[in-house]
Design a binder for these strands. Structure first.
Lengths: 243, 243
DNA sequence: TAGTGGTCTAGACCACGCC
DNA sequence: GCGTGGTCTAGACCACTAA
């Protein structure tokens, strides 16, 4: 089931349609898409609109455009835990058929931790602290510590916390989550992490710390995510940039 | 010194110019850029061209566009080791003033390792194996194992290997490096990794494995990069995608 | 030479924020 | 109501690929 969005622009409809045709193998990896001029007729739109749609696919690594030849469908199978891109655990769970579970350990007021203060967050900033342990097939894999900043967010119903934070913020509060910065490091675990993630002897944890912003650049969420190293994997698609 | 590229299109010239004005604080974080209509006059171009330039900056996380208001300059300082994006060690070194060094340990013919065979690379594929230890301030930080695939690449002069592989491929061989897939995991080190990276007791290594492709979808390079965990950090900027 | 993608234009209409 | 960014168009010229 695809995440149907309110992206009703012509270029997004076209992009989704082509993605769907790739997904269901009407367009196959290694073959060329119809040319931009043909797509122009197929969708009854201008060529620039077609090109904007194809650029979306290009950015996603689904096609490779070659001047003078055409657009080749690439062989992508998409994956595990993306650090690139913002996707919630719930969305991942849905798209990947994992047997996942979320346990809320804390949901209370708290201070913002040192890491974020050092990065410009105000020390007096009030926040709702949400600690959640994510398990897959009964095994703990991620410990999430979220700090939801006031006044944008006044608190999270625990029922929503067990579900999806992003869904709550976007659908219930009407916020537009727009972008985030992330930093990934590998660290020695604290005792809490050791016990909750059931780390053996000298295993380390993978720490992913992020700051999430709304469309109007309001900072709304700070997250510290601790992953079990043996369960941690992420994949990325990157284009060579010349900036 | 900026990496001046042969990107001579109007939209790229405009993008670079605005980036440069942000860099030198003519446009400051938290303030709005001139409106698209003003930029149209400033650069003597059409609005669509301006918009394509601004979209570049948007993708890079340098500005945030807000409908009805304008484009805000974001406070970005760019960082350490980007997994997102394709950048060579040499380019990083240049842009970050590290005191870095590269030692070539191996430069010879070899088989392709198992990991890549499992991902569709042909077992009979011939490759030049290049092993390099990267150090910063005298401390080893990364062990790179590159497999450069024939017939595209016939071999690498050791002098070039000490310098930049990408530079050699792009400038000497005239190849257009276009995209790459990457996978990051945390693993127990081999004895070789332990000794070369001077890992203490029970430290793990961060493994980054990637496959690099040319513009025409030719696979040219396989890389296994092993990072010392205490020296490993990367940052990412991500926009919320609704696909 | 014909077809492809890359760039650019001048103009249009829309949705949103603000006064 | 006015200015902002978001979308779309029809047409033009270019650079590259292939026959």
């Amino acid at each position: 089931m695809n995440n149907l969005q309110a992206t009703s622009s012509k270029q997004m409809i076209i992009a989704h349609d082509i993605i769907s045709k790739i997904k269901y193998r009407q367009y196959r990896p290694g073959t060329y898409l119809p040319s931009e001029n043909q797509l122009t007729e197929l969708y009854g739109s201008s060529r620039e609109t077609i090109r904007k749609a194809l650029n979306e696919l290009n950015d996603l690594g689904m096609i490779q455009k070659i001047k003078g030849k055409g657009s080749i469908v690439l062989d992508t199978q998409r994956y595990t835990f993306p650090i690139s891109g913002i996707t919630s655990f719930k969305e991942l769970n849905n798209s990947q058929e994992m047997n996942a579970q979320t346990k809320v350990l804390h949901n209370e007021l708290s201070q913002v931790p040192e890491y974020f203060l050092a990065r410009g967050v105000d020390e007096t900033q009030e926040a709702t602290f949400l600690e959640r342990l994510r398990s897959v097939n009964g095994e703990p894999v991620v410990l999430d510590k979220d700090y939801l900043l006031k006044p944008s967010i006044q608190g999270i119903p625990t029922k929503e916390a067990e579900n999806s934070l992003y869904e709550y913020l976007e659908n219930q509060l009407g916020y537009q989550i727009s972008y985030a910065t992330k930093e990934v490091t590998v660290e020695s675990p604290t005792d809490e992490q050791k016990s909750l993630l059931q780390l053996i002897d000298h295993e380390m944890v993978v720490a992913v710390r992020s700051m999430t912003y709304l469309n109007d650049t309001t900072l709304v969420q700070l997250t510290e995510s601790y992953h079990r190293p043996d369960k941690f994997k992420f994949t990325d698609f990157a284009r060579r940039k010349k900036i």
